[in-house]
């Protein structure tokens, strides 16, 4: 699409000139444009506080937040909280995603199991998953185990639903192909079922990750003595909005980073979906 746009706008200009000039400008624009809005926000933020519209004990200016974060990094405090949060998230993610894939696959493959289990699960889905939190605290207490399980629950649901949809939505015609050509169980799994379900599974894993972050915050807000969520609560109770903001920004950066890792994996694994160009037919007479 970008290619089309470029060639359309370049149509009335000499080709050689376009080639030489457009490319660097395009590159520069690509790198600069995304930063304009954040820059404006920071400038506005600074302006508002400097003008005294919002008192600085409620919204500290950017330079204070920067200083606080530098201090927290220097003391190793930020890293400790980061590690605590990431550790919880990783365990929760693992404990949620693996069963999510397993159960989603089983229910997707067996119609009987689907009829038995799926209506119930779909019903439970109507409950916003954060509403489970109090029950979880009742059952598992407020220890580390409870926090990890809570995150696992949040991750499990979207992974399960997406995997189930991916498996039951497999193209039966490709399965018939596998049957006719006698691919056998292993090769059918390896070359037909798994790649066919992969897009849905990856969508589920990404959705699971974003829910995982949500549940980390929930778990740490309620009961924790470490982690970025704890930093949020603590900053609030000690009237340190700068520390709250540092925690918020860390969540933002980590969330974005982890999602782009998955997005990158998706792009590599699903390269076959990304193709635009077609092979032109130039019929050579035999």
């Amino acid at each position: 699409m970008a290619l089309q746009r470029l060639s359309a706008s370049a149509r009335d200009e000499p080709l050689s000139r376009t080639r030489r000039e457009r490319v660097p400008t395009g590159k520069l624009t690509r790198w600069v444009v995304p930063w304009i809005v954040p820059a404006l926000i920071v400038a506005g933020w600074w302006g508002i506080v400097a003008a005294g519209w919002i008192p600085s004990y409620q919204l500290p200016p950017p330079q204070t937040v920067l200083r606080t974060s530098r201090e927290m990094i220097a003391q190793g405090e930020l890293l400790a909280h980061l590690v605590a949060t990431l550790q919880r998230l990783s365990w929760g993610y693992l404990l949620g995603a693996v069963p999510g894939i397993a159960f989603g696959t089983l229910t997707g493959l067996s119609p009987t199991l689907r009829r038995a289990v799926d209506p119930t699960v779909q019903g439970l889905r109507a409950i916003p998953s954060l509403a489970w939190v109090p029950l979880f605290l009742l059952w598992f207490g407020i220890g580390e185990q409870a926090r990890v399980l809570l995150i696992a629950l949040g991750v499990f649901l979207p992974v399960y639903f997406n995997v189930l949809a991916a498996i039951s939505g497999l193209d039966w015609r490709l399965v018939e192909f596998a049957q006719v050509y006698r691919l056998g169980r292993w090769r059918t799994l390896r070359f037909v079922l798994i790649p066919g379900a992969l897009p849905g599974v990856l969508t589920g894993l990404r959705a699971g990750l974003s829910l995982g972050w949500m549940f980390v915050v929930a778990a740490e807000l309620i009961a924790a003595s470490s982690g970025l969520g704890f930093l949020l609560v603590e900053g609030q109770s000690t009237m340190r909005p700068d520390r709250v903001l540092v925690a918020l920004l860390s969540f933002g950066v980590l969330g974005k980073l982890s999602d782009s890792v998955l997005a990158r994996i998706e792009r590599v694994v699903l390269a076959w979906r990304e193709t635009i160009g077609s092979v032109q037919e130039a019929e050579a007479t035999p």
């Binding site: 015609r173 490709l174 192909f177 070359f191 790649p195 066919g196 992969l198 699903l270 979906r273």
Partner: peptide
């Protein structure tokens, strides 16, 4: 229809 596996 050709029924080729789109990922190969």
């Amino acid at each position: 229809e050709p029924r080729l596996l789109p990922w190969l």
